[in-house]
Design a protein around this nucleic acid. Structure first.
Ligand SMILES: [Zn+2]
Ligand SMILES: [Zn+2]
Ligand SMILES: [Zn+2]
Ligand SMILES: [Zn+2]
Lengths: 134, 134
DNA sequence: TAACAAACGTTATATTATAACAAATTAAGG
DNA sequence: CCTTAATTTGTTATAATATAACGTTTGTTA
């Protein structure tokens, strides 16, 4: 009876805490530098933790940036339907929590007959701050 | 009066022709191997061509795969609003052309007040073929 | 406690992408 | 045509991102 792991392991906790404390998405090697004092020495240790954290819905990968951000949607069990807004100027990234959007996309079906359980959406534009400064 | 380039350069044409002939998305180094007989020797030559082709809307990058696919929407001048369906099993990728979807997303605005001119959406699931074989 | 799965540690290496610089080509204006 | 600027090219080196392979340790379950 294999069952989904509940508890995070030591390395997973360390990596998660760094990501949660960060103001924005972190890159894997930046995480590595941040956790070396806590005993994590190699990239692979970070990548393994990242993989598990993503599976657990604790973090998401921003694909267009190869960076990782903590989930703010009360730990999306979802984790499969993600949407982000990304500022092209200051690189600010925010997870979009919008039930209409997620409903719309979860129910989307094109003529291919393919039904999707998973998607990732990345919006780009200028955030409020950066819009003013222009 | 700088103006958007109309004509593709030699290397851009070579790279584009490879991508257009391919059945699915190609990775940069796979493109490189494919064009070496045509005189392109270095990764940078490929990446430079890719960059221009993306700007021109001739190709798109599949972010979750670090791969490049030819645009099928009559050369999206759009190129800024992209959606793809990706099969998790056979890796088949198809650009989604659906005006309702693009209208919905182009008009989407969340409570952040941010308005988006650009997005990339990647759907994941099983294609028809792979669904049958399961 | 035996058996298995998951996590860990470590070294090496694969893959993806860009920096820096100089030469060649192309486009536009006088 | 000549000049100038912009773009494209060629080349070498290197940065940044990610995984393979192996053996050990730890935790769970029967
Ligand atoms: Zn989330
Ligand atoms: Zn901003
Ligand atoms: Zn397109
Ligand atoms: Zn398939």
């Amino acid at each position: 009876m294999t069952q989904k792991q509940e508890q995070l392991s030591k390395n997973q906790q360390i990596v998660l805490s760094i990501i949660e404390r960060a103001k924005g998405p972190l890159k894997a090697y930046s995480i590595l530098y941040n956790v070396q004092k806590r005993g994590i020495k190699a990239p692979l240790q970070v990548y393994r933790a990242l993989e598990k954290l993503i599976e657990a819905g604790k973090i998401h990968k921003i694909e267009s940036k190869n960076a990782f951000i903590a989930c703010k949607n009360s730990d999306c069990e979802i984790s499969k339907t993600t949407a982000f807004s990304i500022c092209n100027n200051c690189e600010h990234v925010k997870e979009i929590k919008n039930s209409k959007l997620s409903k719309y996309l979860s129910n989307f079906a094109d003529n291919s007959g393919m039904k999707y359980k998973k998607y990732n959406l990345e919006f780009f534009g200028l955030c409020k701050n950066c819009k003013l400064k222009q």
